[in-house]
């Protein structure tokens, strides 16, 4: 099963990154997605299907600085 933000997430195995982000209601303009240690370009959110052993990190940014 894939690991998402450090947790095992079996129900997202076989699901695209785009679908995961939509289900979780992430605002795609405010996030950066790291897939197996590398940034995942937005154009690939649809193409990447989460599988066993994958590491997905979704970093959400909030305003202020």
């Amino acid at each position: 099963m894939p690991f998402i933000n450090g947790k095992k997430e079996s129900k997202y195995s076989g699901v695209s990154v785009h679908e995961y982000l939509a289900v979780q209601q992430f605002d795609e303009r405010r996030i950066a997605v790291e897939y197996n240690g590398k940034i995942l370009p937005e154009k690939d959110y649809d193409k990447v299907i989460l599988k066993d052993g994958d590491q997905l990190e979704v970093v959400t940014f909030v305003g202020g600085g």
């Binding site: 303009r29 405010r30 950066a32 940034i39 370009p41 305003g63 202020g64 600085g65």
Partner: peptide, 17 residues
Amino acid sequence: CLDEAEAKAWLVRTLRS
């Protein structure tokens, strides 16, 4: 060290890639 969330996000995406 930007202040807008969207700007932080595109900056990370751009430079990390």
